[in-house]
Design a protein around this nucleic acid. Sequence first.
DNA 1: CTCAGTGCAAACCGTTTGCAGAACG
DNA 2: CGTTCTGCAAACGGTTTGCACTGAG
Lengths: 166, 166
Amino acid sequence: MTTGTRSRSALDLFCGYLREQGLPVTGQREAVARVVFESDAHLSVDQIETVLRERKERIGKATVYRTLDLLVKSRLVNELDFGEGFKRYEPRFSRKAMHEHLVCESCGSVTEFPAPELPAIEARAAREHGFRPTRHRLEIYGLCAKCQADGVEITPEGIICPIEIV
Amino acid sequence: MTTGTRSRSALDLFCGYLREQGLPVTGQREAVARVVFESDAHLSVDQIETVLRERKERIGKATVYRTLDLLVKSRLVNELDFGEGFKRYEPRFSRKAMHEHLVCESCGSVTEFPAPELPAIEARAAREHGFRPTRHRLEIYGLCAKCQADGVEITPEGIICPIEIV
DNA sequence: CTCAGTGCAAACCGTTTGCAGAACG
DNA sequence: CGTTCTGCAAACGGTTTGCACTGAG
């Protein structure tokens, strides 16, 4: 969707990774990788399949999943889970090194934001608990600007319990 | 498992919540609530069922799920998701108001830690993106002290891609 | 006595897997 | 050519749902 150059080089890296691992570089793998690399969104498997279908690429669901595994292992793609019941995938390329996610509970849109204090938090937790961190995830859930403008209200869903436990 | 007093009052609150909503207070609901309130862990549905079985409580899986929904709605229990493919539940009672989670990728143990800088992070992200936050989640994944002592190593899983994208 | 809750089993849904046939190297 | 991949469909596992029956209020 965005620049061709960026996605091209990410694709090249992926192909290089495959060759390095002695794995075949197939048309299907390239097609799936291209979809992910060319998007600046956080795609679900379903969305990836839709794009592939639009492009007249006939690729089985299993192959999409298997290719995504490879993309994640190659570390060119991050796997995300916003508790929607399915996974999302974002290219690590064309993105800020560390970013966290704002997830709208109404429309599901995802915005990225930086949280430079996280390494310090991580280091402190590590020191205090003898924990060796490898990665973190920070998500803030709420209402995006657009949904607020559209007058969406946070539905208290279940009624609030009389006693606020804090 | 821990104090009887704490769990008792949480249970009372839950029963009060049910009555307030005009919902029946049943033995099954009390039994499930007791298991969650009496634990200071982050229980999966499976673990809850195991405890119920030990206590000779014969309660269907569907009822456990339905009661957990009520507990979450009552806001006496938090739903957690560490990307394991299933949910976990923690009582909000007998816990620090705000705590985040250290998740061991080897043994799955979960440790709580405070991150007092999060409200500021949340406020900044909200201000800069017009986002209205309702809740957040921060998890740090890695190796717990015990697993490190046991000599567990982070297996690079897939081989590292030659180019580090940052 | 009535309406909601319960248990069972089937349905669901995202993901994984087994296997025969196709393709990369 | 052998090894790995692909596509299909069936299997999987956590969760949800439909329905007859039980039980709380």
